[in-house]
Nucleic acid binder design. Structure first.
Lengths: 137, 137
DNA sequence: TCCACTTTGACCGAGAGCTTCACGGGCGCA
DNA sequence: TGCGCCCGTGAAGCTCTCGGTCAAAGTGGA
């Protein structure tokens, strides 16, 4: 199970935009691409998806750009993954074989607990510098 | 992030073998493939990986077959994913861009918490029938 | 009107995942 | 010893997604 580069890019870009939140400044694609080291042409797609997912808003034309649609505290890691990946943990729903149902059920539990876990991480936590603090269960 | 079919197969097959644990019976590929609805030729590869990963043992020749290497209580979901997928959550280690480090750090935390979560599910839980019980945080 | 920027959509190469096939090789039993 | 069973191994298609590119159209401000 690997974390897609796309989600990584999205997180980085959103983190950058979170720092701009509160000011009137809008984020521009070229600037985001340069600062966060993301291929600009690919970033376009990602921003479009984030916009369709309701996480950011855009303004066209000259003086245009992107901004968060909500406060950073109200955007969670779960939201981001959900918009980009579609599902936090996509499970084979076939449930074939003698043990199929039970296995599916267990994975569904894992997913549920993962969702709760991911909703803990809000975007404002991304905007801070790396810390030494440990995680708590 | 989607759960690979391979892990699903591995879980089902191991669940089946957990039910055989304690008896002298060995599991046969053809039988496993039929009961758990897994392509037999593919299953061979999966079983080989599980064997190399130390989760099961095999015996060749007539009267041959597969059996768990340890008690079901001592095999966790984490072990299975680890053997099959290599890593529970593979993270882009580049940490590029202004927010790269912080984002990587957060994902590392998520992974650590996921590991703890997955170690909670031992193989003996797979061998039971589906239940209505809810999960607890 | 012109320019800067966003928006849309089609396209593609590479690689991973799933599956199948073919054949080699140890083991037990007659 | 030889036969049949079953594991072991490698390779080879096939499909699908992912990461990334390119071109053109829409939109609003100066």
């Amino acid at each position: 199970m690997k974390l897609s580069v796309k989600v990584d890019y999205a997180c980085r870009v959103l983190a950058r935009m979170a720092r701009l939140h509160g000011t009137d400044a809008l984020a521009h694609i070229e600037e985001l691409a340069r600062i966060e080291v993301v291929p600009a042409n690919y970033l376009v797609q990602i921003l479009t998806e984030l916009r369709n997912g309701g996480l950011i808003t855009s303004r066209r034309g000259k003086q245009g750009g992107y901004a968060l649609a909500r406060a950073p505290q109200e955007i969670t890691l779960y939201d981001i993954v959900r918009v980009i990946e579609g599902d936090l943990l996509e499970i084979n729903m076939a449930s074939e074989g003698q043990s199929g149902r039970r296995v599916s059920q267990i994975w569904a539990e894992v997913r549920a607990r993962m969702e709760i876990l991911c909703k803990d991480y809000t975007l404002d936590k991304f905007a801070t510098k790396p810390t030494d603090e440990m995680y708590y269960i």
